[in-house]
């Protein structure tokens, strides 16, 4: 197998006396969809937060394309080409879809107007239409505040935003939790498209069927450690559940 794109080694994270991660490893390879599974409290979200820069590890190393990196903030992660779709949708509900898509990366008017801080809303709307179109999201009114959209549409906006800006890795924390059948299918379709564009996707999901269907590879966490890795084509739901619940003692046993 190729060199890992993103690699975490021995990550430890304490919250007071609670040890959320106890020497956790994690690998993401280029051009793959890797699913991160585990029972509630296994440390999946904590790991993602550390890799995405919104939390800092107490111990351990992270490297990107073989280089050791320090991800001190979400902004640094974004600069490195790492984007995250958060479970609690980090959207500004009063702004429209296009404004949210470009939040923090607005397109400016050319020339002097841009220097004065004027936004190029027309280009941003066109870009947003394209990005949403790729996700198969139809926002009837692109100028409507995100708060006026349905839960699924909101999720689509959040996913579209991360996908649009990621160049290396996208983390998706339960991206389909609030979605209907059709929209779920579309989001998963998008995740595949991300991979086809050469960006790795990390999918956190509780839906084993979905994981087996979409992912190329599966990493299983339990009690703050990685306990197993599977090739998605060969794994079964029983194997996954067994790994999650402690049927497999240590990594590498499978």
């Amino acid at each position: 197998m190729a060199e890992p794109l993103l690699q975490a080694r021995g990550i430890v994270k304490h919250y007071g006396h609670v040890e959320a991660l106890r020497g956790c490893d994690f690998d993401v390879y280029p051009n793959e969809i890797v699913a991160l599974v585990g029972d509630n409290g296994a440390g999946k979200s904590t790991l993602i937060k550390i890799l995405a820069g919104s939390e800092q590890a107490d111990e351990g190393e992270i490297s990107l394309e073989g280089q050791r990196i320090h991800v001190g903030s979400p902004f640094e992660a974004m600069r490195l080409g790492i984007e995250t779709v958060y479970q609690d949708l980090a959207l500004a509900p009063d702004l429209d879809g296009s404004a949210n898509l470009y939040l923090g990366r607005e397109l400016m008017q050319p020339g002097i107007l841009g220097k004065l801080g004027f936004l190029d809303n027309r280009s941003m709307r066109a870009g947003a239409r394209k990005a949403f179109g790729e996700l198969g999201v139809d926002l009837q009114n692109a100028q409507s505040a995100v708060a006026n959209l349905s839960g699924g549409q909101r999720q689509s906006v959040a996913v579209a935003r991360s996908v649009a800006w990621a160049s290396k890795v996208v983390f998706l924390d339960e991206p389909t939790a609030a979605l209907g059948v059709i929209q779920t299918a579309r989001v998963l379709e998008t995740v595949k498209r991300i991979r086809d564009r050469g960006v790795a996707a990390v999918l956190i999901s509780h839906n084993m069927r979905q994981v087996l269907e979409v992912a190329d590879r599966i990493e299983v966490m339990r009690l703050g450690r990685r306990v197993a890795r599977f090739d998605a084509k060969k794994a079964t739901i029983e194997q996954l559940v067994s790994a999650m619940t402690g049927g497999i003692a240590e990594e590498g046993a499978a």
Partner: peptide, 16 residues
């Protein structure tokens, strides 16, 4: 200005 008022955390995460 509006983004911060709408969701300060989102604005922060967006790098503002």
């Amino acid at each position: 200005t509006l983004a911060i008022g709408s969701n300060q955390e989102a604005a922060r995460r967006a790098g503002i």
